[in-house]
Simulated scan of single mutants.
Amino acid sequence: MRFDVEALRQRLEQAEALADHDVLTPALNRRGFVNVLTRQMAYCQRHQQSAVLLYMDLDNFKPLNDRYGHAAGDEALRAVVDILIQQTRESDAVGRLGGDEFAVVMMNASYEDGKAKAGRLQELLHSQGFEWQGHHHGLSASIGVRPLSVQTDPEIWLAEADTAMWLRKAEKPSIR
């Protein structure tokens, strides 16, 4: 009986982990990211810590998918998450919110830290990109940066960062 209870507990833990993680990449999915964001917001507010949210949308992802196929698009998404995870600390969180949209929450970081990180991520996406059928493909992204201030709802914070991202995307002449 004890063995059966332990096996069921392990299966429940596995199911919960699957429910919070993206099926294609090692990033959190939207549900998992919002759960982490909620806890981190509460921690920051309780301990008067700073945090910044980066909201990222890949530029020209649809044409990439259309030209090279969904397998190439999937490889690009995995490459993006690999870069995001390599460039964040354990206290940060990386989420794939859907399609080609990603978010990173950086703990104990200022708006300036977030802007610097966004710039570095854009450089790495372009230079590292991904390999597909023997060819290197650079990537580009629009990244909105929004510091934690008085937000108490993670969805509001995400919406603010998403708006900041769209403002950045509108600044790019070939991206609309």
Rank of each mutant, 00 (worst) to 15 (best):
K62W: 11
N108K: 14
A103S: 13
R31D: 02
A164L: 08
G99D: 04
F33V: 06
K172M: 08
G144W: 05
A71G: 03
P26S: 10
L84P: 07
R96A: 09
T25S: 07
H135G: 06
R31W: 11
N35L: 13
G69P: 07
S127C: 03
S50C: 09
I85E: 13
D57V: 03
S174G: 05
L158S: 02
L124P: 01
D20Q: 15
A7W: 00
L37H: 05
A27T: 12
L64H: 05
E13L: 14
Q40R: 14
L125C: 04
L167F: 00
A161P: 13
W157P: 04
L64A: 04
R46M: 06
F3L: 14
K115A: 06
H70Y: 13
R78M: 14
V34D: 02
E13R: 14
L139I: 02
A51Q: 11
M41G: 11
F3I: 12
A72Q: 07
F3P: 00
E16W: 00
L28S: 11
K62I: 11
G144K: 05
L54P: 09
L167S: 10
N60W: 02
K62A: 10
D82V: 00
L84Q: 05
A27I: 11
Q45V: 01
G144M: 10
A93C: 09
L58W: 02
G134V: 04
F102H: 04
A170V: 02
M56H: 00
F130V: 10
I83L: 14
S140E: 11
T88R: 14
P147I: 05
S127I: 01
W157N: 03
M106C: 15
A159D: 03
W166A: 07
D153S: 02
G138V: 04
A19M: 11
W132T: 09
D162Q: 03
R176V: 08
T152F: 00
L124F: 04
P173H: 14
V80D: 05
E112K: 05
I143W: 01
T152L: 09
D100S: 09
Q48W: 01
N60Y: 09
K115M: 14
S127N: 11
H126K: 13
G119P: 04
Q128V: 15
Y43W: 12
S174H: 14
R146S: 14
G138F: 05
Q122K: 15
A51N: 12
G98R: 04
A72E: 03
Q151K: 04
G99P: 08
M1R: 13
H135T: 12
R168M: 14
E160W: 00
D92E: 12
V80L: 06
A93N: 07
K62F: 10
Q45S: 12
R46N: 05
M106K: 01
D162R: 03
V36M: 12
D59E: 13
K172R: 15
K62Q: 13
Q133L: 09
Q40I: 00
E112W: 09
R176D: 08
L37Q: 07
